[in-house]
């Protein structure tokens, strides 16, 4: 294994609402390897987006990073703990957009509505590089061409509302990749798109990754997307990573009962077996179970153990799993 690009240890991001403290991310461990894609898989509300935003320290109030370390390897080889950087200071701002970039779920609302896409991209380039405006513009055009936007010389003047959903997401990708980041965080980038566009965007992202050699942290709830793009998979449930393994291991030898249940809930071609929904529903964020968070919905839960003691992460051949059954 090469040295990790980003190592997240025991990350906790909590939301301090008037109703109580919502522990959206409560002890997440993740490792991102250079040039590889880590998919973070989970249902909505499991904390995967908050994890992604915590890395760039752009969690909106009342959310706050409570504890944990995020060790980021700078291009010069030094290590920075992102968790300790002040969220509006120059240190983290130099990393945002330049070393770690992010693309968001909703391309319509994630681009500034009354600024041309060309301006939004070249502004980012100028922010991180001491070059002239003309040069930034030509880099912008080149970037738009790379993401497959036709006639980029004309399109740099276009406004987001003049582009289709797929084109907007391409512009968003161009915006994220214009400074050649070492890590791209993609927060459900294809969820808002139709299936064909979705496939095109995934292909594009894979191709660009191959060209630039960047790592990707891919947030999704879609097992099909995971199979398509991921090298490694981390499965999240209620603010914790319950299982991390290679994509093959996840699909062919899932360990955690939650991962298995997820896999049983998707249709497979050729199989005539009934689909199984996961029993029960996700607990209310303010009423977390005392032991293993999945225990109330788990068929194999061990009474007296799973419902009282939170499990540790245990190593497996392909990664780790957080379950008493694998102790």
């Amino acid at each position: 294994m090469p040295d990790p690009l980003l190592r997240i240890e025991d990350l906790r991001t909590h939301f301090f609402t008037p109703e109580g403290v919502v522990k959206s991310v409560d002890g997440v461990d993740l490792t991102v390897t250079p040039g590889r894609t880590l998919a973070v898989l989970g249902e909505s509300g499991c904390g995967k987006s908050v994890t992604a935003r915590s890395i760039l320290k752009i969690v909106d109030r009342p959310g706050r990073l409570v504890s944990g370390r995020m060790l980021w390897t700078r291009p010069d080889g030094s290590i920075a703990d992102l968790a300790s950087l002040p969220p509006t200071g120059p240190a983290i701002r130099a990393i945002r957009g330049r070393e770690i970039a992010m693309i968001f779920q909703e391309p319509m609302t994630s681009l500034g509505p009354i600024t041309s896409i060309g301006d939004q991209i070249s502004e980012t380039i100028l922010l991180h590089h001491p070059i002239s405006k003309a040069e930034a513009k030509s880099r912008t055009i080149a970037m738009l061409r790379r993401v497959g936007i036709p006639d980029p010389e004309a399109r740099i003047a276009a406004y987001p509302f003049q582009l289709s959903g797929g084109m907007r997401q391409r512009a968003m990708i161009a915006l994220a990749l214009c400074c050649a980041p070492r890590l791209l965080i993609a927060d459900e980038p294809t969820t808002a798109l139709d299936v064909t566009t979705q496939a095109n965007i995934l292909d594009l992202m894979r191709a660009l990754q191959a060209e630039d050699g960047m790592a990707m942290l891919f947030i999704t709830h879609d097992l099909g997307v995971v199979a398509e793009i991921a090298d490694e998979v981390a499965v999240m449930y209620l603010g914790r990573v319950v299982e991390q393994a290679s994509v093959d291991a996840i699909f062919h030898a899932p360990r955690h009962p939650y991962t298995r249940a997820l896999l049983r809930s998707i249709p497979r071609p050729g199989s005539r077996a009934r689909l199984e929904a996961i029993r029960g529903s996700i607990p209310h964020p303010l009423a977390r179970p005392a032991g293993c968070a999945f225990a109330p919905r788990c068929d194999q839960a061990i009474p007296g153990l799973c419902d009282t003691t939170p499990p540790d992460a245990y190593p497996t051949e392909a990664g780790s799993v957080r379950c008493h059954l694998h102790a």
């Binding site: 760039l56 945002r96 330049r98 970039a101 681009l111 980012t124 915006l175």
Partner: peptide, 9 residues
């Protein structure tokens, strides 16, 4: 959030 993630002040 996008603008913030770009590194703008």
């Amino acid at each position: 959030v996008t603008a913030r993630a770009k590194g703008m002040s």
